[in-house]
Amino acid sequence: MPDYRSRRKVRKKIVSWIVFFTVLLVTTVWLTPILVALFTSVRDYDDIILRGFFALPEEVSFDSYFAAWRQGRMRQYLPNSFLITLPALGATLLLSSLSAYAISRFRFPGRRPIYYMFIFGMMLPLQILMIPVFGLSNAMGLYDTYIGLIAIHTAFFLGFNTFVLKNYMSTVPPQIFDSAHIDGCSELRIWWQIMLPLTLPAFAALATLLFTWIFNDYLWALILVRTGDKMPVTTGLASLQGEFVTDWTVIMAGSLVGTIPTLMVFVFLQRYFIEGLTLGANK
């Protein structure tokens, strides 16, 4: 009997070691590009020319971070990214919470078609919308403005947000609203003072996801913004690619600085972020 038990212990230990090494391996594979970026950012251009990308830095220098900030215009691109992300985030959450509230709470003719429309909108791939959206924003005079970019982000995520929030709101027992209603509370106040506080976890999770998506967007910014002083980090960094010479140390330094905001959001709101991954998966 004791013999049997110890053998089980050994087996358990082996299994845990195998798990450990597998996790280690996968983590290494995932972290390699980030490490290469980190090493590249502290090397200098001549070193890369002479010894290629995959080499350890001979001398560590943070010059490329200063270069990214000044010549690379990160000091301009980074605030731009926030100027686009935050309003878009606020607007899309506000609008979709209203639409989700209406769909989840009221029974009115056309409720289901409207709901399905949001879901279908969510399934449209971005690439299909590129040319129509460009044409529309050009015709409306929104081409090359922040507002044009904010508007498309707001509209683009409405479908997904409404879908997620509607499902979450449906789980709130309707009796709460009925009693509020009987007490004379208006619908808007119910939405603002009862529904929103109750669905706050879903909001937080959704907001973290949306922040990373909008902040990291490249394609819309590429299509809708032309002038350099309006570009967000993503397209701004891409413009550092030269005709003959591209200083990868600066681009890598800029990219790493550009990931800090999303990293912060992730670190502080990690709990919601993980919830967000399964958000809307179950009704």
Partner: peptide, 24 residues
């Protein structure tokens, strides 16, 4: 209002710049 565009992207974008209603 000065923008520096990646060289290859610029080459592709030039016809659009020149034909735009409100060109650089």
């Amino acid at each position: 209002v000065h923008s520096i565009v990646a060289h290859e992207t610029y080459k592709d974008a030039l016809p659009a710049y020149l034909r735009a209603e409100n060109p650089p």
